[in-house]
């Protein structure tokens, strides 16, 4: 891990990994869409509307996955003052917020034909909405300071506090109200969903993962380049001042 604290070493790794993830994404996205939209059978109750699941469920998983990653990276950044972990956390936040927004929007579109309403104040919907606000707070705090390093440190603390509180919020909201269907894939007695629907779902999940990794690496690279540019500018300004003085 400490080896990759060097931005240059990380850049070399990212340059080597990125073509593969992008190629995998380009290859798997059509396959996943074909499986989800054509191959998979329509649901016996919900008809073709159930196909929204193939976007909704991976987006919701990725929303939670990204927050977990954000909290872990923030812990690493906070404890070891790991520059790259800080940049990686910052780069992951908007992607996670976007996945959360996609999960909320696709869920709302799915809810209209199934529940007859765009939004219900159900436990899962509410806790995902709160997750969205946690992402927004993290990003806003990051940009709230003149000194970007200060913003990054403060945002790390907030991400950790949010991670500690997330289970409590989830638990309290669950107790408060529940209408959303219970988990049907991650269960001890095996999934309750038909294999013909499970496979397209896994392929779509892989597509979302690849999309995340690709965009994430691109964003980290951009942030690192931005920092380097700022550093060079500062050095250039100092150089000019030195020659002038």
């Amino acid at each position: 891990m400490q080896g990759y604290a060097n931005p240059l070493a990380f850049r070399r790794l990212a340059d080597r990994v990125l073509p593969w993830t992008l190629a995998g994404l380009a290859a798997l996205l059509p396959v996943g869409l074909y499986l989800a939209l054509v191959q998979a059978p329509p649901d016996y109750q919900q008809g073709d509307a159930a196909r929204i699941m193939y976007v909704h469920v991976p987006a919701a998983w990725m929303a939670l996955f990204t927050y977990t990653l954000l909290a872990l990276l923030s812990a690493v950044a906070w404890i070891w003052r790991h520059l790259l972990a800080e940049v990686a956390a910052r780069a992951a936040a908007p992607i996670g917020a976007a996945f959360t927004a996609v999960a909320l929007l696709s869920g709302s579109i799915w809810g209209k034909p199934m529940w007859g309403t765009w939004w219900v104040w159900d436990a899962r919907l509410t806790s995902v909405l709160i997750l969205f606000f946690l992402y927004l707070g993290y990003m806003a705090l990051h940009d709230a300071f003149e000194d970007p390093a200060r913003g990054a440190r403060a945002a790390s603390i907030l991400a950790l506090v949010g991670a500690v509180n997330l289970p409590i919020i989830k638990f309290s909201v669950d107790w408060w109200n529940t209408l959303h269907q219970p988990a049907s894939i991650m269960r001890l007695d095996g999934p309750t969903i038909a294999p013909s629907m499970l496979w397209p779902l896994f392929v779509m999940l892989l597509v979302f993962k690849l999309l995340f990794v690709s965009v994430w690496l691109l964003r980290i690279r951009a942030h690192l380049a931005e920092r380097r540019l700022q550093g060079l500018r500062a050095m250039g300004a100092r150089g000019v001042a030195a020659t002038a003085g």
């Binding site: 606000f133 707070g137 705090l141």
Partner: peptide, 30 residues
């Protein structure tokens, strides 16, 4: 926690609501 995080930031009060209100939710519910 929210007040301390925002010390010296450019926009305190409005951002405090965004940071702190989600964490207040369990207290409100119970």
């Amino acid at each position: 926690i929210g007040a301390a995080l925002l010390l010296g930031s450019r926009r305190g009060a409005t951002l405090a609501a965004l940071l702190v209100l989600p964490l207040f939710i369990p207290v409100l519910i119970f």
